[in-house]
Design a protein around this nucleic acid. Structure first.
Lengths: 299, 299
DNA sequence: AAAACCGGTGCATAATTTGCATCGCTTGGA
DNA sequence: TCCAAGCGATGCAAATTATGCACCGGTTTT
């Protein structure tokens, strides 16, 4: 696409950090690339790079331009997908940044169902924590985010929210398995594994535990992988924590989950969101609509 | 701006309706222009024009592209105004489509006040009816619309709404001037002028009148100019109708206005709006914020 | 003090774009 | 029915523009 050439070169220079390095990456001489950059700045009316002794760096105007470039590129992709939709082709791409809990059961099921109707639509799905997810949205690297309790919310437009109480995951023969609902102080008496503070589960548990001096988290094992933690309890008699949407009901009979009492621990909010004010590509918008339907039915 | 060249040519062709005509307008040969269009369609992957015997016309894909072009151009202008804002220059342009009622008093006062703080900001202000206003927004021809009761609302995002009861405008010695509030059936007993059905005032009056068989509008004079109508009552003893925001309180002592009873006639909604989902240029966004403040204080 | 990078520039060359002439086609009026 | 007018497409040479190469002056690193 001809009119995006300059933008591509600019992004290349940003990535490489210097015009010379970028020129090697992009099959062009440094002098030609240099002239393109200079010409663009001339026409644009403002410098977008600071010239440093060891290369170049975006100045504030350049940061704004970079955001514009990304927005424009994504807009153009959306335009193309709209146009190809006109010609009856059901194509497109959906990129999702999500919490780990959605990876094993929820999203595979949703995506597979969606793809039976839209086999031409491709997906990229990546686990991101709540900070990364928002950054990806604002860089147009992901269309849709589905995360628990995103931390900063300026660019994150919440499209749908559902509450998920934290569940205790344990072997079926665990003493707590008899309860329909588990009190936090009971749970914490047993050996437990827990995720790091990066994750909403841990934050919610700590917040709840701090309400009473007697309750306190003492995870014997910390991990960043919920997959690991939930499987660990199969091998050593411990309890783990996870949101129910990340649990596979009835698939593994020797592992069970029971909700923590919401009296003790506030439920986590699973938030479906996108970049504020952005119009999503058709495929993403359609898939998001499906997600909203499914999530709404969960409550 | 180099990367917009193709877009400019495409818009030129759309305007002219044929490549040859457009080529005359734009200092280029028909053959060169033809090749640019063809090359663009090649790279874009889809035809955007239907070739007709007497010229070319946009196909549906082209319509989408046109919207993208307009959005991109406006985005780029916004980017520039953001960048010039960085360098401390308070510049920019605000374009407004509004109902007639706002032209004589409200907007001049608002704009003048705004410009004392931002002397670098320029304005364009045009009277548009409620259908035209929305079209201008969606074509990026105006940033802000301020109209009574816009008819179709798909692309119109309401940012602020205030209710305005219709006022009766008359000479100070008119019998009705003694009432603090006027009943519709009383008003319609007197000779009156009225705007055409294009205007919200007329629609609201007709709707109200239809509630009783006895009340009926019989305008002796119809006009599309509220300015004309409100001044006419100075010369012949009639009554006219207008929203209070279009009236100049206390400036002309021999002309007075009194509200129609809201029991009889529903108030008109003055709606401040923009194109749905659009991020306005900085200057427009700031001015809109001012408008919201002023309008909110009116209620 | 020298080597390694960096962005910028003059100049010849390569690549692209343009203008001109012309083709084939459809349409509207004599 | 035919012909002129208007349209988009295209081959080819000229003009314009971008590129590559060699090199400059500067700063940082060694």
């Amino acid at each position: 696409m001809r009119h995006l050439k300059d933008f591509e070169f600019i992004e290349g220079v940003i990535r490489a950090g210097s015009i010379r390095k970028a020129s090697e990456d992009m099959n062009i001489t440094a002098s030609a690339l240099n002239r393109r950059i200079n010409r663009f700045e001339d026409e644009f009316g403002y410098e977008i790079f600071e010239r440093l002794p060891r290369g170049v760096r975006l100045n504030p105007a350049g940061e704004l331009l970079l955001h514009h470039i990304r927005a424009h590129r994504s807009d153009f992709a959306r335009l193309k997908s709209q146009v190809s939709d006109l010609s009856g082709v059901r194509r497109g791409h959906v990129s999702i940044a999500c919490s780990q809990a959605l990876l094993p059961y929820f999203l595979p099921r949703e995506i597979a169902r969606y793809r039976t109707d839209h086999p031409g639509v491709t997906f990229s799905v990546n686990a991101r924590d709540r900070v990364e997810a928002e950054r990806e949205l604002s860089e147009f690297a992901s269309d849709i985010a589905l995360v628990f309790e995103p931390r900063t919310m300026v660019d994150f437009e919440v499209v749908c929210a559902i509450a998920q109480p934290i569940h205790v995951v344990m072997r079926a023969d665990h003493p707590l398995a008899g309860h329909a609902e588990i009190r936090l102080r009971d749970a914490l008496r047993y050996s437990h594994v827990a995720p790091s503070e990066k994750f909403a589960v841990r934050v919610l548990l700590e917040t709840a535990a701090r309400r009473h001096v007697s309750t306190q988290l003492n995870p014997l094992i910390e991990s960043e992988s919920f997959d690991f933690m939930c499987h660990y309890v199969e091998w050593e008699d411990m309890i783990s924590f996870q949101f129910p949407i990340g649990l596979d009901y009835g698939q593994t009979p020797d592992i069970v989950s029971r909700p923590l009492s919401v009296v003790d621990v506030a439920p986590g909010n699973l938030l479906l969101g996108q970049l504020r004010g952005r119009t999503l590509p058709v495929a993403s918008a359609r898939f998001m609509r499906e997600l909203i339907t499914t999530l709404s039915a969960l409550t």
